[in-house]
Every structure is written in structure tokens, then in C-alpha cells.
């Protein structure tokens, strides 16, 4: 069942960033760009409540502070730029992986028996996306989800993500560098200038 809850940031402030307020409607992708060190990742970490911050985040009419932190993070799922794995085998991290998804991402179900140690950075990144999405969140925070992928794979992963986001109605914050990618996936595009977030016009 698609989500009908919007993700709303209300005067969220962390580090250099002052009071970010924005609303991501269900199924919409808002891209964030900005120079490195401008606080894009920290903003996502604040939305996931991984760092102390000011202001509040809302999913529909549920406030971040009103839920136990782990329940909030299970709903508002952050996928970091670099993924980390704790068990030896891929399958232990992906208990409910859909074979169809594995195939779209370029894997066979065999991958579940692989050792995590033998994964390349690109494979890790794709599997980390699947790991997050297979937990059925209600909103997505993606930190450069295609940074380690080649052009063809980037397109495929992007299309898969886009389709899933629209179909499930996940409000999504997507940190991206590539202008072409932003043009392809974003409904709205925000650029970080110092302490402010300014909207860049998009043509979608």
C-alpha cells in the first residue's frame, strides 16, 4: 500500500545549516546538492535523528520526537554513501530480499551466499539500497546512492529507485552531485549556499 504521508522538516538546524524547512510530498524526490563539507550528509543524519539537532521532522502527523528513535529510523530510512556490513554473508543482512529486485540490480539469488568481504564497492552500494528498501520504510534519505556505479548501472539503479519511490509513495531526499542525474530524478532541487537552502528551478 503506498504511503500517503509527507516528510516535513520544520526549522531543522544542524552544524552550519540554519533552520531548514521543507515539505516532501509522498512519491516526490527532492535533490540536495552543494559543495562537499556543506552539510548535506549531516542534514540527512539529523532527519534520521542520528545527531543532536534543533527543530523537528514530521512524517505525516507523527513527530520525530514522539516515536522511539529506532522506530523513527525504520520508517525514515537513511542509506549512507558508504555502506557497512556486520555479518559474514550477504544473505544474513537481507532476510527478505525479492529475487526480482536482485535481478534488476544485476545479481542472481546466488549473491545471498557470497561473503561480504568479496563485494566490490559498487556491489555493496547496490545491495545496501536493496537492504534498506526491503525493510519497507515509509520515507527514504539517499546519500549519493549511485556514487560508486558506472554510467549504465547508474541509469538502471536510478530507474529502479524512481519506480519504487513513485509506486510506494515514499517521500525522498536524495543527495546528488551530477546535474544530469538531478534533472532525471528530481521534482525539486535544493542547493546549499552557506547556511541557507535555496531552490533551483527544475523542469519536471
Amino acid at each position: 500500500m503506498p504511503t500517503t504521508d509527507a516528510l516535513r522538516l520544520e526549522r531543522l538546524a544542524i552544524g552550519e545549516l540554519a533552520e531548514v524547512s521543507l515539505i516532501v510530498a509522498p512519491g516526490e524526490v527532492h535533490c540536495l546538492s552543494g559543495p562537499s563539507g556543506s552539510g548535506k550528509s549531516r542534514l540527512l543524519r539529523a532527519v534520521a535523528d542520528l545527531e543532536p539537532h534543533d527543530g523537528e521532522a514530521w512524517l505525516g502527523d507523527v513527530a520525530q520526537a514522539s516515536l522511539p528513535a529506532h522506530e523513527w529510523r525504520a520508517r525514515v530510512m537513511l542509506v549512507p554513501a558508504e555502506s557497512h556490513w556486520w555479518a559474514d554473508h550477504v544473505g544474513e543482512h537481507l532476510p527478505q530480499a525479492d529475487p526480482a529486485d536482485l535481478e534488476v540490480l544485476g545479481f542472481t539469488p546466488e549473491v545471498l551466499n557470497w561473503q561480504v568481504a568479496r563485494l566490490s564497492s559498487g556491489e555493496k552500494q547496490r545491495l545496501a539500497l536493496l537492504r534498506a528498501i526491503s525493510r519497507e520504510p515509509s520515507a527514504l534519505l539517499l546519500d549519493e546512492p549511485t556514487a560508486n556505479l558506472d554510467e549504465a548501472t547508474t541509469r538502471r539503479v536510478e530507474a529502479w529507485l524512481n519506480e519504487r519511490i513513485r509506486e510506494r509513495g515514499w517521500p525522498t531526499l536524495w543527495v546528488a552531485h551530477d546535474a544530469a542525474q538531478i534533472a532525471r530524478v528530481a521534482n525539486h532541487h535544493w542547493h546549499i549556499d552557506g547556511a541557507e537552502l535555496s531552490q533551483v528551478p527544475t523542469w519536471t
Partner: peptide
């Protein structure tokens, strides 16, 4: 730290994230 935080991001409780 990165492993613990990644487990938290996936919605695990702190007890589970630092269990190992």
C-alpha cells in the same frame, strides 16, 4: 562506529546494534 550507525539507520535498537 560506522557499522554501529549503519545498523541504527536500518532501524535496529541500540542493544542490537552494539550486540556483537
Amino acid at each position: 562506529r560506522a557499522v554501529i550507525e549503519n545498523r541504527l539507520m536500518l532501524g535496529q535498537r541500540w542493544q542490537e546494534a552494539i550486540g556483537d
